[in-house]
Design a protein around this nucleic acid. Structure first.
Ligand SMILES: [Mn+2]
Ligand SMILES: [Mn+2]
Ligand SMILES: [Zn+2]
Ligand SMILES: [Zn+2]
Lengths: 142, 142
DNA sequence: ATAATACATTATATTTATTCTAAACTGTTG
DNA sequence: CAACAGTTTAGAATAAATATAATGTATTAT
């Protein structure tokens, strides 16, 4: 548990006390070498599989929302039935594989700056996100 | 009810019989001079306000989904709690006013073609959508 | 360290969007 | 018009998300 201090700091900065449930959540979210996308249900399953401790749904939701508010996680709206979350909080875009229901990151560098030639009076742009839906390329013809 | 024939045709092409409930739904959706965005709840309210007939939630959901499948409506994912729908089925993008929870169309012409310099083997892009979140521009300084 | 306090966890209940069910009803076809 | 296929509907079921409130734990004060 070498990284525990970082998690404690993250929790404290989010206004949360470092309890063992929350530290476990941090381990799963921020210990991975790679960032990843998840649903709450998947996150709970990961925690259950790799930990001996029990974490209630309410705690997971509360902690995830605190991290979103603080910018340690991002929420990605894809469909109405369920939220997707992202441990990659850098500015980036996504492919969404509609057949496999899977998100794939597109680095900001891999998309030319999106130039919107229209403004709304009294409003400013806070963020711009691109979602490219992808499907199997069944080029069986020819 | 001059446009009824068009609605009947739209329904038939969607594989639906033209019942009076469905024609009423079409009137609300496709009679407007302008396209608009709506939630199911809002659509039901509009129907209730302007019609003498009763339409059940199940019928509204089923009809909306049939139209989406046929391409007469588009679904716009914005948050996990509720789906937004769009009667503008042309290729376009959106501002989303996060304070007022309101969608605003951005014509395709108002956004330079989004150039994604990355591909996924075996997959092809079906659609590309841009969502720009906007907030109040409180330029009280200076 | 101990006690007091504030905050956290949890099981459970609630809310709400969406989907399902099955009985009554309606459009279509011959 | 009869027969059939498809439709509407109220209400039930489902499932994500949030709220509640009793119990437990980290922190702070003593
Ligand atoms: Mn949604
Ligand atoms: Mn839901
Ligand atoms: Zn991502
Ligand atoms: Zn639109």
């Amino acid at each position: 548990m070498a990284y525990a201090d970082q998690y404690i700091e993250k929790l404290r900065k989010s206004g949360l006390r470092p309890t063992k449930q929350r530290i476990k959540i941090c381990e799963v979210l921020f210990d991975a070498e790679k960032t990843f996308h998840f649903t709450i249900k998947e996150l709970v399953k990961i925690i259950e599989n790799q930990a001996n401790i029990k974490v209630s749904l309410a705690t997971v939701y509360n902690t995830v929302h605190a991290f979103i508010k603080k910018g340690y996680l991002k929420e990605i709206p894809l469909n109405a039935s369920q939220s997707y979350y992202d441990t990659n909080v850098s500015h980036h875009h996504h492919f969404f594989d509609v057949e496999e229901n899977r998100l794939i990151d597109i680095h900001q560098d891999d998309v030319d700056e999106v130039n919107i030639k229209r403004t709304i009076p009294g409003k400013k742009i806070r963020s711009v996100e691109v979602i490219a839906k992808i499907v199997s390329d069944n080029q069986s013809q020819k």
